[in-house]
């Protein structure tokens, strides 16, 4: 009601709640559900290990496979390396907290980049016609927001 027209504010507010809701879902998934994820190697990893024998600790003990070419990661010292928070001994908490931090970090960095790169209130006018109709049902509002 203050700086933007009423309906624009209304739309923003609704989308704002959608973002908040979506973030809560993401935080729940990364912070809690992540602890129930499968620990088996993923499709790429298992293909990379094909041909090698592997012990319980995940170390290659023999054979020939793609993974043998692998070198250490540059940032193994990162406090969040391998989706755990260093210093937290409880595995459940460590994984969950790393997930929560990852979601917030990704939203902050991604959202920040996209916000800086955006064109302004409205994207390309011609392509946006449909979007306007979708967010504002009243035709008068449609005209106003142009």
């Amino acid at each position: 009601m203050k700086r933007c027209d009423v309906n624009r504010c209304h739309v923003k507010k609704k989308t704002g709640w959608f973002i908040v809701g979506g973030l809560l879902v993401a935080l729940l998934l990364a912070g809690f559900v992540s602890n129930f994820a499968s620990a088996d190697p993923d499709g790429l990893d298992s293909a990379a290990l094909e041909g090698c024998t592997v012990d319980d600790g995940g170390n290659i003990t023999g054979g020939t496979c793609i993974a043998q070419g692998g070198k250490d990661h540059e940032l193994l010292d990162s406090p969040l390396a391998d989706y755990g928070l260093r210093g937290i001994d409880n595995a459940f908490l460590s994984t969950g907290l790393s997930g929560v931090l990852g979601v917030l970090l990704t939203f902050g960095i991604g959202g920040g980049i996209f916000w800086l790169a955006r064109r302004g209130k409205h994207a390309a006018p011609s392509a946006d016609e449909n979007a306007d109709v979708a967010e504002n049902v009243e035709p008068s509002v449609h005209a106003e927001s142009r």
């Binding site: 973002i19 998934l29 939203f107 946006d128």
Partner: peptide, 21 residues
């Protein structure tokens, strides 16, 4: 950039965060 406006930018941030999760 042609698609990114005031509404898509935060939504895209959410999509990235959701994919991370």
């Amino acid at each position: 950039r042609g698609d990114l406006d005031d509404r898509l930018a935060p939504l895209a941030g959410l999509v990235a965060a959701f994919i991370f999760a």
